[in-house]
Write a protein that binds this DNA or RNA. Sequence first.
DNA 1: GATGAATGAGGATTCATTCAT
DNA 2: AATGAATGAATCCTCATTCAT
Lengths: 191, 191, 191, 191
Amino acid sequence: MPKPRDEMKVGQIYQAALKVVLQEGFAGLKMKDVAQAAGLATGTLYIYFAHKEDLINALFVHLKQAKTHQVLSTYDPGDPFPVTFKKLWFSFFEISLREPERMIFIEQFARSPYLSAETKAQGDQMLKPVEDILAWGIRQHIIVDLPTSLLVSQIMGPIFEMVKQHYDGKLEITPQLMENCFSMAWNSLRR
Amino acid sequence: MPKPRDEMKVGQIYQAALKVVLQEGFAGLKMKDVAQAAGLATGTLYIYFAHKEDLINALFVHLKQAKTHQVLSTYDPGDPFPVTFKKLWFSFFEISLREPERMIFIEQFARSPYLSAETKAQGDQMLKPVEDILAWGIRQHIIVDLPTSLLVSQIMGPIFEMVKQHYDGKLEITPQLMENCFSMAWNSLRR
Amino acid sequence: MPKPRDEMKVGQIYQAALKVVLQEGFAGLKMKDVAQAAGLATGTLYIYFAHKEDLINALFVHLKQAKTHQVLSTYDPGDPFPVTFKKLWFSFFEISLREPERMIFIEQFARSPYLSAETKAQGDQMLKPVEDILAWGIRQHIIVDLPTSLLVSQIMGPIFEMVKQHYDGKLEITPQLMENCFSMAWNSLRR
Amino acid sequence: MPKPRDEMKVGQIYQAALKVVLQEGFAGLKMKDVAQAAGLATGTLYIYFAHKEDLINALFVHLKQAKTHQVLSTYDPGDPFPVTFKKLWFSFFEISLREPERMIFIEQFARSPYLSAETKAQGDQMLKPVEDILAWGIRQHIIVDLPTSLLVSQIMGPIFEMVKQHYDGKLEITPQLMENCFSMAWNSLRR
DNA sequence: GATGAATGAGGATTCATTCAT
DNA sequence: AATGAATGAATCCTCATTCAT
């Protein structure tokens, strides 16, 4: 039953589901709670999603898509590579920092048994534009010539960790610190 | 429930639990399965652990401890800082790569609702020696002067991501690649 | 869990629960059996009652209330005290005798660990009208001037014991015997 | 396995079991707790008693016997009936009042599914002397000529109820009150 | 489409009893 | 005899899913 009419209601459900996950944790996600948070009856969820798994997968795709979209919105093809890189790096960091729960959800989810093969593929798909941009930097001999997926790990890994530390209240992130981190990222990739 | 003697049995249970988690996923961890995998009756688990939560937390601590121990076993206080850093970096990478499941379990777990505050504290505690070593590098003006917890993120983040990619079959990791990655790590940190 | 409408179903459950208690004994009350006896699924019970304890407490209140109601239904404020007393005494005896299981359940329950403080209070509350009537008799100098709660004990105690003996098949209760017992009760109380 | 050697240990077990019942309630009687309270291992209980049921039944008989013994110890065949009656009545009341838990245990137990037929018979047996004494009173035309078992109900019923009320803190029992109660009892029985 | 009461399989936990030491 | 770790059947309760209204 993929996407009947009411797109609005689907949005409500996504919002409710995310809220519940953030409150109750991931394992504690109950359909009833989601319905309640969305102001709907339990049965109604099953009109929009065939299963709990379905709902979660859809939510995952939705969130990842939204995030990717936000991050890439700063991308201007006219910019030279280093500018593009810096813009995207900050954009990704800031967005992750602003909604750490969303980031954490996405990460947790990517390793959960709920994640279907199809969803996984869709998720990976979204990195494509980023990898293309990195490939462009490689072609210009600006950054190291290594598999782009590896470079993605290099870039995202530290950001994930920092955001989590920040979320846990163990690290205060100042503009100065962000600049320092960017330097580190850049130093690790530049040729 | 003060843990009785039989450390052997506790070991069996840990092993069984990890096996089950890896097979069935994290949410699908059933006490019965753990017992079965350990060749014990369900009730027996409750002799050694008060709760499922207890068992999982203990497993977490156990695995993290074991890993930390392994990693630090390569540490020789006589080595100069750069040698120490390289040894530990490789050690951590290799060990994570050799048992990616353990690493993934630890990471997943660190964000699960099962994780108790106490366990979390214990887990954080274990990073102390690593942070001390980094502080030493900072004092010698070899690496950048930033909070050590941040440096830990910088180092571990990419490794986590790479190991996961490797585990997912998306990245083949060769000795050459490892050297490249190490260079990136070093370039990002060195002064 | 605010009890939903369907009073009918609640009634079914009460009936089923009492039936099970009488068949299986008190300690042997299993939710599954109750559900089965009520023609419902186990889970359904939990729609109407939060816990087993809840169900039992509610059943207790329900039975005690029903019984009190029945007994007091013979009460006519126009009657002089001795008539009232005799009517109520016989009413209580006969009703207890007619449904000894209910009486036994109530008594057993009143001493069980399941009984919550609140339920206990509710149960005690129901004796109020009876105590009021006894107080009336005291004011008229017809019966002895002792605490009404004590008088209640004097009246109910023997009835409880007799009904239990009857239930155990150790005592046949004839109309003649009842009259004799009433005389004894009256003789013990009258001034 | 009725009564092997160590009579002392059996006593310990009885004491422990009663203690646990009084603390944890009747349904909450766990063999492990009894063993612990007795300073023994779980398995040891099974040397002295075949089953939990066995243990409880034996405890019941033990308590009832002890109580009966205590009550009857005031009995002097040389006394005239009214004196005997009064002595026994007070003796029973006082003893019940002094150890209400024991009394409650006995009462609860008498209606529990644990009670075996044999135990029940034994319990009833113990009332024999009391019934004999009442029969004596009947023969002398001092008290009403009704079945002795009925008279027992008349006598014990109010006492049970009063002790329970006292135990629940709802009734303070003074010597004066006891006298009043005795008068009531006597008035109800005497011819 | 929307509802939410009903379902019942599934899982955590308990505890009487056993048995190797 | 004494021990107490081990057993596993038994039971409470949850929650994804269905379906009559």
